[in-house]
């Protein structure tokens, strides 16, 4: 039986909203069928079947009111993958094994979608998630980057503090996404390091940290790249005094997002940067300094952009939809 190849699979999670709906709407308008796959609902609600024999293989996904073969999928939007959400009734001694096996199954299942266009390919996303690699490649394509030290050596951290004249921030390469206590969660944002903090720097032996020179800010930029198109939102640093270190921190009043035009040379470097990673999508953070220099901070290959679409009416969802069904993409 011939199956029409008119499905775009949206890989996300059950808590996702707004951006996922905007992309689904944009895809529908372009005449394809968006299908949402909430990864945290596998294996309890999403059912996967992968069947192999000597002549062929076929894979199906059943979730909610749909059942599709992966042969129907022409493109995949790789937005988020969350861990399985398993019933509290499951015997606790088997929980870890069930999660591990489910993740391995899901990871293997993606192979059945190898003929589809991905935004973006999982291997490329993982490659781009290396933040030290990001800094190296950013520098190689001509972006300014903050002087940076990553170390577990106390003496080096103290030396670096003086090299940057005591203007230093710290952060981690990864996020603390899981609760460290039953009823509360801890988060670590980019934080200012004071000299007295470094009296305890010997404790770096238990876990390294990233240290960077603190860059003076005129504006903080969220730059969204979609298959050659560039969308920019800016926050004025004088509006969000409390956020002069990290605007992403909850409770910080950031003021409104504003339009911002990147210079042609920065756009050229941005395209070279994305080309080096082979990515069609990325959410990048830059600082515009008071003297007008653009300083690269990081890229998140699956970063947020909904606030720019909503507040600035930037057509990012439409651009993603177009990239998904474009012959040139992928």
């Amino acid at each position: 039986m011939h199956l029409s190849r008119d499905v775009v699979l949206l890989i996300t999670h059950s808590g996702d909203f707004f951006t996922i709906d905007r992309v689904a709407q944009a895809l529908s308008k372009k005449g394809v069928k968006p299908i949402r796959l909430d990864t945290d609902k596998f294996p309890q609600q999403v059912q996967l079947v992968a069947h192999f024999d000597e002549s062929r293989s076929y894979h199906t996904i059943e979730y909610g009111n749909y059942s599709i073969s992966t042969e129907q999928v022409q493109a995949v939007w790789m937005r988020r993958i969350w861990e399985p959400e398993l019933s509290s009734q499951l015997a606790s001694q088997f929980r870890e094994a069930c999660i591990r096996e489910s993740k391995a199954t899901l990871n293997g299942f993606w192979d059945s979608l190898k003929e589809a266009r991905w935004i973006d390919d999982l291997a490329r996303i993982n490659y781009a998630n290396n933040k030290l690699r990001q800094l190296r490649i950013a520098s190689e394509v001509g972006f300014m980057i903050p002087r940076t030290l990553v170390t577990n050596k106390a003496e080096s951290a103290r030396e670096f503090f003086h090299q940057v004249n005591g203007k230093m921030v710290s952060k981690l390469l990864t996020t603390l996404s899981h609760s460290m206590e039953a009823n509360s969660s801890f988060f670590l944002y980019t934080s200012i390091v004071k000299e007295e903090d470094l009296q305890d720097a010997e404790s770096l032996r238990y876990c390294p940290m990233v240290f960077q020179e603190q860059i003076l800010k005129q504006r903080e930029l969220r730059v969204v790249y979609v298959n050659g198109n560039v969308f920019v939102g800016a926050l004025n640093a004088d509006v969000y005094t409390a956020a002069k270190v990290d605007w992403r921190k909850p409770g910080v009043e950031v003021g409104g997002w504003q339009h911002h035009q990147l210079p042609d040379e920065i756009v050229r470097r941005l395209k070279a940067f994305m080309g080096r990673f082979g990515l069609l999508f990325g959410a990048l953070d830059f600082i515009l300094t008071p003297s007008g220099e653009y300083v690269f901070l990081e890229i998140n290959p699956v970063g947020e952009w909904g606030m720019l679409e909503k507040d600035l009416d930037l057509p990012i969802a439409s651009a993603i939809a177009l990239a998904l069904i474009s012959e040139k993409a992928g």
């Binding site: 670590l188 305890d200 238990y206 876990c207």
Partner: peptide
């Protein structure tokens, strides 16, 4: 505690 704990 690791060094980063002071910034949590």
């Amino acid at each position: 505690l690791p060094f980063f704990a002071r910034f949590l």
